[in-house]
């Protein structure tokens, strides 16, 4: 039988589930279809549109968020899998009107042009610099290898990460 033709009576598991997640310190409870990706959930159910949907196949890194502190592709996870977990998105970086030092560094050093890839780069950088002080350029390029940018040619992004490495007190 085609999957799309299954009726409710055929269901052996859940098609919808109510989940509770903490995003940037705020708790949310929503009922979602089990096939909804985490990034679609963040954008469409919670209205947090900072996380971008690029390739939906785990290649571009635009949807990178932190799940319990680890950077992950939010297009390769279903929202139901984040039930009970803590997420950090780009909306969680700045303190009110004050940019996070990583955001400020990207602003200052031409770390973005169109900005589509930027949320992913910011969270990847956040995870990288949290553990690393005094990163070398090859280490930075390695750390950023899972994020694609089609505007900047990466030079400005690498400079931004180097700058944030110095300005972010952590």
């Amino acid at each position: 039988m085609d999957v799309d033709e299954r009726t409710t009576a055929d269901h052996v598991g859940l098609r919808e589930k109510t989940i509770t997640v903490t995003v940037n310190g705020d708790s949310y409870q929503r009922t979602v279809p089990v096939r909804r990706s985490l990034v679609d959930f963040l954008r469409e159910d919670l209205g947090l549109t900072g996380s971008h949907v690029g390739c939906e196949q785990g290649v571009c890194g635009a949807c990178t968020v932190l799940l319990d502190g680890e950077p992950i592709r939010a297009c390769l996870m279903f929202a139901v899998q984040a039930d009970g977990n803590e997420l950090t998105t780009v909306e969680g970086l700045a303190s009110g009107e004050e940019l996070h030092p990583i955001q400020q560094a990207f602003w200052d050093h031409h770390g973005l042009q169109c900005g589509f890839c930027t949320p992913g780069f910011l969270l990847t950088t956040y995870d990288f610099l949290r553990e690393k002080h005094g990163a070398t350029e090859p280490e930075i390029r390695e750390a950023l290898s899972g994020n694609l940018c089609r505007c900047t040619g990466y030079q400005g992004i690498v400079r931004s990460v180097q700058a944030a490495d110095e300005t972010w007190e952590r």
Binding site: D4, R6, V12, G13, L14, K17, V34, R35
Partner: peptide, 11 residues
Amino acid sequence: MKPAPFDYLAP
């Protein structure tokens, strides 16, 4: 694209 519908079990 989005996945085709499936039933979800999390043992």
